[in-house]
Structure formats: C-alpha cells, structure tokens
Design a protein around this nucleic acid. Structure first.
Length: 564
RNA sequence: GCGCCCAUAGCUCAGUUGGAUAGAGCACCCGCCUUCUAAGCGGGUUGUCCCGUGUUCGAGUCACGGUGGGCGCGCCA
C-alpha cells in the first residue's frame, strides 16, 4: 500500500545498483563495498527529475575518478530501465534522470484511484504501537502559547505517523497532585472569601489570574459561604478539585477548538489514589534500581548515564514528581506501547536523562524519546509581551485563537522546526492576515474547488465525468502540469520523512510548495476550454491536486475551504 | 563550573542526515486581470552560512576550540 511511482523508483534503484555492481567489477573493484543507490529529487529542474550521487560515493571506495564511474554507469542510457526518458552523467559525478511523460501521467491515475488514501502508506507499520504524550499541563490556569505550539506539534506528529501506517495514540497527563494544586486551592479560597465579604490576600506564590475569580463565583453560587468555616485540610481538598475540574475542562475545550484531540487524559492524582506509586516504588526496590539513603528512596539513574541518582521518595515519606512519573510511564508501557514519545516544554530538558534512565530501570531501555517544543516569544509589533502565569498577565492560547484564528495559529506554530525558538508577532499575524502562508495554501484549494464547481455544468459535464476516471491523461503535456504532478508525487515521501525526522514543519513547507505548483499551473494553463480532451486531462489533475492539498492541510489541522 | 538548544539575506525562518551556482516568505523595485477566484503569476535587488582549526574529491551540514544568546543543573513540578 504505497504510491505506485515509489515502487517504480525502487525498481529503477535496483536496476542502477546492478549496473553499479557491473561497473565495479569491470574496474576491478568488486572486493570493495558497493554504495547503495538512492534517487532524490533534483534541486534544479535543468538537472532532470531525479538524481543520485552513487558514483561520487563509489569513487571514494574504489579510488577512481567519479565522473569516469558515472559515465560508465550511464553508458547504456535508459536501456532496460522503465519510465526513464534520459539518463546522463553530470559534472562532478552525478547521474541525472529525466522521467517519461507517462510516468507523470500514471501518478495522476494512481492518485485518482486512491482518492483520500493517496499519500497514506504502511512505510512505518513496524514502528508501533506508539504513544505520543504532549501538552501535559498543570491544571492551574488556561493553556498558554507554548502549549499551543506543543499541541500543534504533537497532534500533527500523531497524524503523520498514522498516515505512515504506525499504530499511534495521543495522550496528555494532568499534573493534578502536589503542592502547586494546594497553592491553587488556597488562591481560589482567597478569591472566594473576598467575594463572600471577608477580604483575604492571595497566598505567597499564589495565582493572580482573573480566571480564578470566575471559578470563585461558581463555587460561591454552588456552596454559598460554607467553606469559610471548614477546616483547612478539607477546604484544600475540595477547592483544589473544584478548580482542577473546571480548569481541565477549559483546557480540553481549548485543545478541541485548536483541533487537538487526546485519546487519553491521564490524571496524576488517580495514579496516587490507585496505589500505583507505592507499587512502582516496590518494584524498583525489588529489582535493585532503587535504594534507601538518609531516610529517602533513590533511583539509581547513574546506572543509565544520569549524572547523579534521583530521589523517588523524600525522607518525610512524600513521593516526588519522578515517582509519579515512574508509575505513569510504567502504565504507558504496560498498555502495550512499544515506543513512547514525550513532547516536553523547553524548561524540562534537564529532566530528559532522568526519564530515559527511569524507563530503562523499569525494563524498557530505549523505548522513550523526548522532544522539546522550544520557546515562543510573543510580540506585538516591536514590543515583546512579557508573560508570567503566576502574575496572571500571560496571553492564552484561546486569546491567540480569537485574535488570528485557529488556522493561522496552527500553521504559524507548526511552520518552524520544533527545536528553534519562535517569534510570534500578533500584530503582524493580524495586519497581514491575507498574506499569511496559510491563506496562500487555502486559496489554492478554494481556486480548485471553484473550477470543479464550474466544471459540473452542461458545457463541461462530460469532460468532468471522464476526468474522474482519468480517461484523457495523455492530454497532459505542459511543463507546468508535470511540475505540479512532481510535487504531488512527493506527498507520501514527505509524510514519512517528516514523521521519521519528527519534523512536522516539513509538511507545512511542502503544503506551501504544492500550492505554488498549483498557482503556477493555474496561471499557465486554462483548465476549462473548448478542447474536451485537454479539459478532461486538466480536470483530472485538478482533482488530485485538490485532494492532496486537502490531505496535507488536514494533517496540519488546518481547514481546507471550498470558498474564500 | 557542568550540561542541553540556538546563531544562515534588512526581518522571520528552511536547508531532506556530507553533494551541483546557499533557498522561501515578508519588505523594496518592474511587469501581468475582456475567459476557470489578482488572497495569484513572472522578473529584479539582498549573504563573512558567528569566528578559527581540522576530517576529504567535496562542509551551512561532521570533529575540536572559541564568541554571543536562551535554558537547565532541588528530598520543586
């Protein structure tokens, strides 16, 4: 199950590999290793459609002139190599391939036949089951922009793996245990008590965000002023849970609106309640990876390349965050996931070594991979927006969605490599919204939709109907048509490569490139004309271009409108 | 002090794991709408790829040493 032309390319690679072997033997270099032949797209169309540097690689191993090798490989030209129009050596030792028109036409046929499935493959089917955890948050306020970034990153990664055949699930972890939740409860209490007429200052390190006032109002409405008289323990417990539930629900709604859906929401508190923490600490002690010292329980992470051992249970008996993570990661692995990917915030990179050591100690070495979603600097024009969650003056993901829209926000976040810092200028995103790259891609889709609407008329209906079957693909001859097809052909490879490299931004780049191909085709080639064969052929191309743009946008979590 | 990330055009950023004259968008200049959406297309201008050394046929990419910026180094999460 993959694009037909990729199978053809693999055949060509095998054919070329045989020639490489023959040339190697002729050069008396058959004892030296044969370099693998891998065809890649050319940067410059003047070089052809695909190229390989195999002769350059062979030159190294064989100690021969690379150009001499390339010429020997290309001596018989395209003989016995299907779909190739021209095979020629070039400058330092490249082999350039020019594909035949039928090769491109067949890509359109393949895409027509596969419909929405075009670009899907089982290339990474052996990779799973895979669980990707991202945007795990403290339930202490609305989601911020970094969480938006990790949300778009994680969800697109999930989509890319699924499209590549990997069994993949998405998950987020709610840090609803520990003292930040206690601080949240007491912050809520201060707001609540003040509303009830008893002026109460926020606690030290309390959360100043206005969202807590709304929650306090809801609490007062439900329970009146009874919590003014409750004892501290019960108050913290009940108010903490009250705030937690509302905030988590708000985060869930933000994520859904942002096009991010989690298959699992795992609660840290639930792991505590189920006794999972005690259980995992026992397991780690029994396996010899944890030991007592100074009244505390340590995990011997230094056995697995950490710089020092880490505390699991404090000397006062309370478990650390790492202990909860031990229970949590054991749970994720016991569910049958062979690989785990965690997308963490940028301030957590000091935690990576310890997490890797942890899963190794649990008996699953190498099963975890941690990705970092880097910082987002928010700007309004030249001014940098300073943000602090405690101070409550941060810009939320919801506000960004309100301001620039879901599509623009998602595209903007995904448009850059995860590990590079991102500057998000809200003013620019607003002022230049019509020049935002996301509109450029969507506009391409809308233009095609418009053509297809017009094609469904008395004048063109028969051509439209033939186009759906790919009846007139021989009518494709224009360079702009082949250039567009060539980009469509790259879809599956781009998806697989982006998943392998954990680089969803490549898909955004691809979508822009694909749209460029269409816009150029649109300018050069009139689709609906009085020539029924050309009309039908170009409509076929429009249909697959539209499907491909829509598929790419869907993977990015961006809508593909039929009208703009 | 130790560790991780980053440094590419005026700005924001790509650069597909070492390949052909280093690319895109924005900005700026010049052209293109009597036929399917001009939110578009074509052309032009812009580089000490932070610096240095090394590895080799070949380095923005790899190694080592620096410089500058961000972050982390807790019995916090």
């Amino acid at each position: 199950m993959r694009s037909r032309h990729l199978a053809k390319l693999a055949d060509i690679e095998r054919g070329l590999a045989a020639r490489v072997a023959a040339v190697g033997a002729a050069f008396g270099a058959d004892h030296a290793p044969l370099p693998p032949v891998s065809l890649g797209p050319t940067r410059d169309p003047a070089h052809g459609d695909y190229a390989t540097a195999v002769a350059l690689a062979a030159a190294k191993a064989w100690k021969r002139n690379p150009m001499e090798i390339a010429e020997a490989i290309a001596r018989d030209g395209a003989k016995d190599l299907p779909d190739i129009e021209r095979l020629e050596p070039a400058k330092p030792g490249f082999l350039n391939l020019r594909m035949s028109p039928d090769y491109f036409r067949d890509i359109v046929r393949d895409a027509l036949e596969r419909g929405d499935d075009f670009g899907a493959s089982d290339a990474l089917a052996d990779y799973g089951p895979l669980l990707i955890e991202f945007t795990s948050a403290n339930p202490t306020g609305p989601l911020n922009v970094v969480q938006g970034r990790s949300g778009s990153l994680g969800s697109t990664l999930v989509a890319l793996f699924r499209r590549s055949g990997t069994k993949t699930e998405s998950e987020t972890y709610v840090n609803d245990a520990g003292n930040q939740l206690d601080i949240l409860a007491e912050s809520l209490y201060a707001r609540y008590a003040t509303l009830c007429g008893v002026d109460t200052p926020l606690p030290e390190e309390g959360y100043e965000g206005e969202f807590l006032i709304d929650i306090a109002l809801a609490l007062k409405q439900r329970d009146g002023d009874r919590w003014l008289r409750a004892n501290l323990d019960e108050r913290v417990k009940v108010l903490g849970k009250f705030a937690r539930d509302i905030i988590v629900e708000g985060q869930r709604q933000d994520m859904e609106r942002f096009g991010v859906h989690f298959d699992h929401w795992t609660s840290e508190a639930a792991l505590h309640d189920a006794g999972e923490i005690d259980s995992v600490l026992k397991e780690l002690t029994a396996s010899g990876h944890a030991y007592e010292k100074d009244g505390a329980l340590f995990l011997r992470t230094t056995d697995f390349n950490d710089e020092k051992d880490r505390v699991l249970r404090r000397s006062d008996g309370r478990p650390t965050y790492l202990a909860a993570d031990a229970a949590y990661h054991r749970d994720k692995l016991r569910r049958g996931n062979r690989r785990l990917i965690n997308v963490l915030g940028p301030d957590h990179h000091g935690y990576i070594a310890r997490l890797n050591a942890l899963v190794a100690a649990l008996g699953y070495p190498g099963s975890l991979e941690v990705l970092l979603a880097q910082y987002v600097t928010l700007k309004r024009g030249a001014e940098v927006v300073k943000m602090s969650k405690r101070a409550g003056n941060f810009v939320t993901l919801a506000e960004v969605m309100d301001e620039v829209g879901v599509d623009a926000a998602r595209f903007f976040f995904i448009n850059r490599a995860p590990e590079s810092h991102l500057v998000f200028d809200l003013e620019l995103a607003l002022e230049q919204s019509t020049k935002n790259p996301v509109y450029y891609v969507q506009y391409g889709h809308a233009r095609i939709a418009s053509i297809l609407r017009k094609a469904d008329s008395d004048q063109h209906r028969s051509a439209f109907e033939r186009a759906g079957r790919g009846a007139d693909l021989a009518g494709l001859n224009h360079p702009a048509e082949f250039a567009l097809i060539s980009r469509i052909a790259d879809f599956e490879r781009t998806v697989v490569d982006a998943a392998k490299a954990r680089a969803p931004h490549r898909l955004a780049e691809y979508a822009r490139d694909l749209a460029t191909g269409f816009h150029a085709f649109y300018t050069d080639c009139i689709v609906l004309s009085d020539n029924p064969t050309t009309t039908s052929a170009r409509l076929s191309l429009c249909i697959v271009a539209k499907t491909t743009i829509a598929s790419a946008l869907k993977l990015l979590g961006v809508s593909a409108p039929d009208q703009m």
